[in-house]
Amino acid sequence: MSVTAPQGFEAAGVATGLKSTGALDVAIVVNRGPRKIGAAVFTTNRAKANPIIWSQQVIADRIVEAIVLNSGGANCFTGAFGFQTTHQTAEKAAELLQVSAGDVLVCSTGLIGTGDEVFRGRVLDGVERGVAALSADGGQDAAAAIMTTDTVAKTASVTRSGWTIGGMAKGAGMLAPGLATMLVVLTTDADLEAVEADAALRRATGVTFDRLDSDGCMSTNDQVTLLANGATGIRPDLDEFASALTEVCRELSQKLQQDAEGASHDITIVVTNAESEADAVEVGRSVARNNLFKAAIFGNDPNWGRVLAAIGTTDARFDPYDVDVSMNGVRVCSAGGPDRPREEVDLTPRATLVEIDLKTGDATATILTNDLTHDYVHENSAYAS
């Protein structure tokens, strides 16, 4: 049931014509519980969409009653008109829900640089019809309504010690980290203080969404939000809660990776024995963003030389002539030189594992990425058409 799996949450997804296909395109999630705790992390891109600018103001007091999301238009670089549209979206939801507009988050996703009176009217109509359609069974429709180039809706939930966490996510392109990526809404009926919710969210996103680097392109609209309502009255063990939240975020991250635009390989890069976790992340990300490496994987070519060339551009501490590289369980490089024959590596499965042993310490990190395909190039060359 996605975001409505925890007690005290309602959601809806409606179609307003923002998408030419007539698919669901406006979602709303409402907290009906006794507490209205909110936490969020946002893109660190300096080019921020109007909903991000608005939501960063709303989240300041960590009180959130509802969140409205639309697909079919990013409402980014649309000037004062666009910010007014976001403001009016929150005001419309607040009026219908009888809450403060300053407690309504707004998210948008779609094409950058477009927005007019028709767009505004459809979003506001979607809010009105979405509020009317709210139900405890509306989570799946909400998850479908935020899809853009996604091919499937992405949801997850876990239950622990009497409380539940639910979540929905969208994202298939422009997936690169910067505190958060894509649009994600997480909900819980556990009883948390605002500072605890914020800490758990940052802990979870730091090792999940922040380490999904599908195409190296950071969006202007990325936001991950956690709503907590205390409906169960249960105060969770904070470590257990953070672990469960991380589990949900990891599942959603993997679903985003598996639905990445045009991808034919889901690549997991595991960096081990680094001097620090920061070094491990930097090394893994350098490979994840290397187009030559990604093209090689698309061609089922275990070209480990491209891995070494990529990690050699980092500031991480290691000796490039003492690094081991394995692909799908075959060590193709040992101590910076050839090891097993490339012919032993089978890269035909979609799941691809690349392991990099830096031999300088005991830190590790995992980065998720995808290959670079003809389909990815085609899809993004025709995105606005």
Rank of each mutant, 00 (worst) to 15 (best):
D237N: 15
T268N: 14
I165T: 06
A90S: 12
N291S: 14
D339F: 02
Q84E: 14
W304H: 05
I267W: 10
N291F: 04
I53F: 05
E261P: 04
L179Y: 13
P349M: 10
K170L: 00
K48Q: 14
S385I: 06
C76W: 02
S2T: 11
T187A: 05
D239N: 12
A197Q: 03
G110S: 04
R160I: 06
A66K: 09
D322H: 14
R250S: 11
V106D: 03
L192I: 06
G262F: 01
G361N: 07
R35V: 15
H265Y: 09
R342I: 05
A194V: 12
R250Y: 07
V224M: 06
A180Q: 02
I367Q: 11
H87M: 08
A242E: 01
L256W: 00
D137C: 02
C107G: 15
A145W: 01
I112V: 15
M168I: 11
T21D: 15
L134M: 02
P320Y: 02
N291W: 01
V64M: 07
K359L: 06
A142I: 04
V332S: 06
A60D: 11
D191T: 14
I67F: 13
Q98C: 13
W163C: 13
P349E: 13
R235H: 09
E91L: 12
F318L: 06
G139W: 06
G33S: 11
A39P: 05
T220W: 01
V207D: 09
T272N: 15
C76E: 06
L111T: 10
N229W: 01
M174H: 00
L18T: 10
A231S: 11
I63R: 14
E344D: 13
G230D: 01
D346R: 05
G38F: 10
N328T: 00
V325T: 04
V354K: 07
A11T: 13
F241K: 07
D125Q: 14
A80D: 08
